[in-house]
Nucleic acid binder design. Structure first.
Lengths: 223, 223
DNA sequence: TTGACCGATGACCGGCGGTCATTTAACTCC
DNA sequence: GGAGTTAAATGACCGCCGGTCATCGGTCAA
């Protein structure tokens, strides 16, 4: 019986090597992600995360001191991955139009619903029950990624200054979290928005984000 | 002793008339608001809300079925009040410049931190544990206020169509919730952002919102 | 004055995040 | 390969909090 379980395990029962600990950490993050994708932050129980990896609840807390820390770590991963993806898109080509850039940004967020949903929780929920050190580590990483992206934006859109590029990134961040909340939807809200006269409150995330970024860029001087 | 308490009471010990019930409801909303202003949604306990009004915890649940319902009702009030305030500003004058309008909107949110903080929680937290009926009632009211504001916006900025006016409102909503999250800050985040090199992540809510709206309007055709 | 209604009460419950003494897998050394 | 050592994993346990409900008693009509 123990053998059957061990056969399924990628990581040894006891993770003693740093490499195994890292793998276990990943298992937990993957479990948290899967559960979050199916429900919501509030509905994901630490016991469920543990069960999904075949571990005991207490074990989860050996890897992450709090539930918020677990999800902030997950956001950290997703954010880094997304910036890499976006920077990959921005690396090619010469000068872009406003619409091209807006499409690229909005497109890079396609299929990243988990990331944007978590991003919308970052300041209001995740940074509530976390150590200063962890919050700082997270923000350091954001800073680095932002710097790279800012440089690439200026290469694609020559009329941008370092100042306006930074502004643009902040606006986009704000729009992404804001629009995700409007588009995203608790099940209850989804039901309400189905009603015909609620149409003005329905938001298509990608379309709306593309339009908003295009408009912003035009306002900043793009043609 | 009971007399001393009763002397403080605006509402009779037992609220039997509808008028008294409404007053008690207000007391609870005010208490929730005061506590939320001092801390955060997660830190406000229903027992505290009760204690602050001199009532028992169970009584709060006679007026609001869940914690989320209480705060959604509070948001409902604040939202209605803010729309009224904004519409008041927009009622005067003829044609405005982009910057004037941006100033008006951002200015109307000055001192409304409680409102914007709650707004940022609306979809991710408050609409989670609430009946469909309550969520719908809330959204109905948003729709009505939005309609009025849309009309006033078109009067102040003649280049706006009903379509672009609606777009603008959605963008502003997204920006407000997004920027509030970036500017607002859990205590932990506030400490981290104090570090000098974190400057690019610091956000001045009013300034940033004014700039963003101005930029958007320019992108929509304002001069 | 009295009886009935109904708002207020607070002890109670279930569930969840988080802890810690104990267990035991995994590695080391002889 | 057996004994000893380390520390990862365990799960019973705790405190807290949102939410419930049998009971109490204030209020008012008759």
């Amino acid at each position: 019986m123990a053998g059957a379980l061990a056969a399924k395990r990628v990581v040894p029962l006891r993770a003693r090597r740093d490499e195994d600990k890292e793998a276990r950490r990943r298992e937990l993050l993957d479990a948290a992600r899967a559960l979050f994708e199916a429900t919501s932050f509030a509905e994901v129980k630490m016991a469920d995360v543990a069960a999904r990896t075949g571990l005991a609840k207490g074990t989860v807390f050996l890897y992450f001191p709090t539930k918020e820390a677990l999800f902030l770590a997950l956001l950290d991963d997703l954010l880094t991955a997304w910036f890499a993806k976006l920077n990959g898109c921005l690396a090619e080509g010469g000068t872009w139009t406003a619409h091209q850039l807006a499409r690229a940004v909005a497109g890079s967020l396609e299929g990243e619903e988990t990331f944007t949903r978590l991003l919308a929780l970052a300041q209001t929920v995740l940074e509530q029950n976390v150590t200063v050190a962890q919050a700082q580590a997270f923000k350091e990483r954001v800073l680095v990624s932002m710097g790279t992206t800012s440089a690439l934006l200026q290469a694609r859109l020559p009329f941008l200054t370092p100042e306006t590029a930074g502004q643009l990134i902040r606006y986009v961040h704000a729009l992404v979290t804001g629009l995700r909340q409007m588009a995203d939807i608790a099940p209850v809200a989804r039901e309400v928005l189905t009603l015909p006269h609620m149409a003005p409150l329905r938001v298509d995330f990608t379309a709306e984000l593309t339009a908003a970024i295009t408009t912003l860029l035009r306002g900043l001087g793009a043609r």
